[in-house]
C-alpha cells in the first residue's frame, strides 16, 4: 500500500490518500492522470490493466486501486 501511495503522491502530492475516496467523482484525477497511473502500475506490478477495469469504482480511492492491483496480480 505504501508503494502505491508513493506512486499516487507522484501524480497529485497534495491529496491525503488515507481519507480521500472521491478521486474520480470529485474530478481530482482526470483522464490524463488515470493513463499516467495505469502506465506506472503496469510497470511496477507487472499487471495488465484493460479498458474494462477503468471504472470509477476501481479508482475512487487508494484502497480501491490497491484492491484492483491485488485482483489483477492474482489473475
Amino acid at each position: 500500500m505504501e508503494e502505491l501511495v508513493g506512486i499516487l503522491k507522484g501524480i497529485h502530492p497534495e491529496i491525503d490518500y488515507e481519507t480521500e475516496n472521491g478521486l474520480i467523482d470529485k474530478r481530482i484525477f482526470d483522464s490524463f492522470d488515470i493513463v499516467t497511473l495505469v502506465g506506472q502500475l503496469t510497470e511496477e506490478y507487472d499487471i495488465e490493466i484493460g479498458p474494462e477495469d477503468l471504472l470509477p469504482e476501481n479508482f475512487n480511492s487508494a484502497k480501491q486501486i490497491y484492491e484492483l492491483v491485488e485482483r489483477l496480480m492474482e489473475e
Binding site: R27, D30, S31, F32, I34, V35, V38, G39, T42, E48, I49, G50, P51, L54
Partner: peptide, 30 residues
C-alpha cells in the same frame, strides 16, 4: 480539459471510455 468534463459530458465520457482509454493503455502503443 475541465471544461470538457463539464460540457456535453455524455459525449466526452463516451469518447474517453470507448476510444481514449483503449488507445492510450493499449499494449502496442505503450
Amino acid at each position: 480539459s475541465e471544461y470538457w468534463s463539464r460540457w456535453h459530458i455524455t459525449l466526452g465520457t463516451w469518447f474517453r471510455d470507448y476510444i481514449f482509454y483503449p488507445i492510450s493503455i493499449s499494449k502496442k502503443l505503450m
